[in-house]
Design a protein around this nucleic acid. Structure first.
Length: 343
DNA sequence: AAACCGGGGAC
DNA sequence: GTCCCAGGTTT
């Protein structure tokens, strides 16, 4: 009798698991440490739509500064947002702060999927991943890697996102009740290192034998995805207002683009409209240049203008010293603008 | 169901 | 340049 698919994959994982700062070694028991679910949660939220390489330095920075969920819950939201700057999808940071407070308040993370799912920023994937990895529960963990691996393994031709239901059902069928967290991470490692989006390394794959997608001949074609929409080109202006080697920074309001983040004042550009070009104060404006940046659904060309002043601009803001601009917590777009001015 | 929301690495 | 990534929330 051939070994089951899950045990074949787990055997492969035992010898090929990536070593990651938030990960338990293969086969090791779930650590009996109050900070363990915190580290799993933090890593999973950071890894939402974000590559391992991008997350590593942020995970290190966060866990040194805030070693447990109570420490993070006690931190000012502003500090959390600034520490997240550059990682993107800032609603994650807003929800991270909310979630930390809720968890700290209730005395720790809940251990079941339905309860985890109620926490801010935790959807179906993250709740399942935490249940499996942090608490050893059996959970069906479906991320982009698993979607790709399962689509190929069972030769699922239906395009995403319509195929999600059958993908989940197939993933459920092959998920073991023991080592559920290792199994989930094994699927992710397989998807990341072997069953890659382009040019999959089928000859090195432990599942080459049962893989229906390979038998069908073109596994790299799967999963089929809908065509992407073109990104419109937008333009806007950011304003560098300076006084005595300090620059005027504002905090963007709301839950929209870059909401909650420090920023340069701008002319009201959005992902869906160009800015007006109108400056926030009367001054002798000097055009410095432009920076380009690409968001989820638009390309932006941001013109940067500079002026000096002797008084405070209207509204809420703060003077930030040039010398510490790297610590201001500017999202990448405005960090680029700052680099342009200070170059 | 579709839109919205960043940024960087790989190619 | 394009595609993709340990997705969630809102409409």
């Amino acid at each position: 009798m051939p070994a089951s698919l899950s045990s074949t994959l787990l055997d492969w994982y035992d010898g090929h698991a990536r070593v990651l700062p938030w990960r338990n070694p293969p086969g090791a028991p779930v650590p009996n440490d109050p900070a363990w679910p915190y580290r799993v949660w933090l890593s999973e939220v950071m890894l939402q739509q974000t590559t391992v390489a991008a997350v590593k330095p942020y995970f290190e920075k966060f866990t040194v500064r805030w070693p447990n969920v109570d420490a993070l819950a006690a931190a000012p939201d502003e500090d959390i947002m600034a520490a997240w700057a550059g990682l993107g999808y800032y609603s994650r940071a807003r929800n991270l702060a909310k979630c930390a407070k809720a968890v700290s308040e209730r005395g720790g993370f809940p251990q079941t999927e339905p309860e985890l799912r109620e926490l801010p920023g935790l959807g179906a994937y993250t709740a399942a991943a935490i249940a499996a990895i942090a608490f050893g529960a059996r959970a069906v963990v479906v991320d982009a890697n698993v979607e790709r691996v399962v689509s190929r393994l069972f030769n699922i031709e239906e395009p995403l996102p319509g195929s999600r239901k059958v993908i989940r059902a197939r993933a459920d069928e092959i998920t073991p009740s023991a080592r559920s967290g290792d199994f989930a991470q094994a699927m992710m490692d397989l998807g990341s290192s072997i069953c890659t989006s382009k040019a999959p390394k089928c000859l090195a794959c432990p599942l080459i034998n049962p893989c229906e997608g390979r038998k069908a001949g073109e596994p790299e074609r799967l999963p089929v995805k809908p065509p992407k929409k073109a990104k419109p080109q937008r333009s806007g202006t950011a304003f560098w207002i300076e006084r005595d080697s300090h620059v005027w920074l504002v905090t963007r309001q709301g839950t929209g683009m870059l909401g909650g983040m420090k920023a340069l004042p701008d002319d009201g550009w959005t992902a869906r409209s160009d800015g007006t070009g109108a400056p926030p104060i009367e001054a002798d404006w000097q055009e410095i240049g432009a920076v380009t940046h690409t968001f989820t659904h638009a390309h932006l060309s941001l013109c940067v203008q500079r002026a000096e002043t002797t008084s405070d601009p209207q509204g809420v803001g703060e003077w930030w010293p040039f010398s510490d601009i790297g610590e201001a917590g500017l999202p990448t777009l405005f960090a680029k603008a700052a680099r342009l001015v200070l170059a």
